[in-house]
């Protein structure tokens, strides 16, 4: 451990900036998972695989077709929205109808199956080789001795836009209100004439679009590879557990918190220690705040 580094304000600030950059990435990763769990109660184990599909979509649209990066990221999100909607309608919705109230355990198993299927499909089609880009945005700047890459700035700005956009969608649109109502009392929502099957499809598609878009956004950090989603799934679970199950906004805050812890841990300890420290944080949260840092109980957005 090299605590002496923390006596240099520039180093402390650099760790902070790096941690913030990482943290918003983790927060973005967790948001889709939290959204689907919060509304549907479903833990989507295929979340990481959707990220992987998002990275491949971004690669094809941006690199193969030569479409500008911002449009390619949107294409990845839209692609995953469509894939999510089709999967929900063809696999999850029939399962829910057939199994009634007991559908969730089967739903978990189904998403594990989806994860295995998508990863192996990617392996067959794309092979065991990275497909990535060097940089989303070139260049960096130095502010008072602190290095800030433009790419991190872009990710940070996108994260803020996503959080604000999702908040506005949930709060001010009729569908957003219907989603929130369904998450709290599905039977009361149905009694209002809300088609909760449609709401679940939209929610699953939206959660998929979020992680797909994040896959596109982070292609330079996480190049497209069949199993690239495993790490993302793990990080997303950590974020969701620490923030509070099903709480989309807490996922972003928890992501930032974890990014900062990881950055400082990596800075003052030997490489690899950050994982042990993060694991210790997760265990501590599960022991002392089992519902998550920002939830009194299992709360929903």
């Amino acid at each position: 451990m090299n605590f002496e580094l923390l006596t240099y304000p520039v180093v402390v600030a650099q760790f902070f900036v790096d941690g913030l950059g990482r943290g918003v990435m983790y927060g973005l990763m967790g948001m889709g998972l939290a959204l689907i769990f919060g509304i549907m109660g479903l833990i989507n184990f295929a979340h990481g695989a959707f990220f992987m599909v998002g990275t491949y979509l971004m690669y094809f649209v941006a690199v193969q077709l030569g479409v500008p990066f911002p449009i390619a990221i949107i294409a990845a999100a839209v692609g995953l929205f469509c894939i999510g909607a089709v999967l929900e309608r063809t696999l999850i919705s029939p399962l829910r109808k057939r199994m009634g109230e007991n559908w969730l355990v089967d739903g978990y198993v189904m998403t594990i199956g989806l994860l295995i299927m998508l990863e192996n499909l990617a392996l067959i089609v794309m092979g065991p080789r990275d497909h990535g880009i060097a940089r989303l945005v070139e260049g960096r700047t130095m502010i008072s001795g602190i290095i800030v890459t433009y790419e991190r700035v872009v990710v940070f700005v996108v994260a803020i836009l996503v959080v604000l956009g999702l908040a506005a969608f949930m709060r001010y649109t009729n569908i957003g209100r219907a989603i929130r109502a369904t998450s709290e009392h599905p039977d009361a929502a149905m009694a209002m004439g809300i088609d909760i099957r449609k709401i679940y499809t939209i929610t699953f598609a939206l959660g998929s679009a979020l992680i797909g878009g994040v896959g596109g956004l982070l292609l330079s950090t996480y190049p497209a590879f069949p199993t690239i989603g495993s790490d993302v799934l793990l990080k997303s679970f950590i974020v969701v557990i620490v923030g509070g199950l099903g709480n989309v906004w807490a996922a972003m805050v928890a992501g930032i918190l974890l990014g900062l812890i990881e950055s400082y841990a990596q800075g003052i300890a030997a490489s690899g220690w950050q994982n042990s420290i993060i694991a210790a944080v997760v265990v501590a949260v599960l022991v002392f705040r089992p519902a998550g840092l920002f939830s009194k109980s299992v709360s929903r957005p």
């Binding site: 009729n174 109502a181 209002m192």
Partner: peptide, 13 residues
């Protein structure tokens, strides 16, 4: 988790 007004807005969709 919604305001009184939002509760009434739910069926609007």
């Amino acid at each position: 988790h919604m305001t009184v007004e939002e509760n009434l807005m739910v069926p609007v969709v």
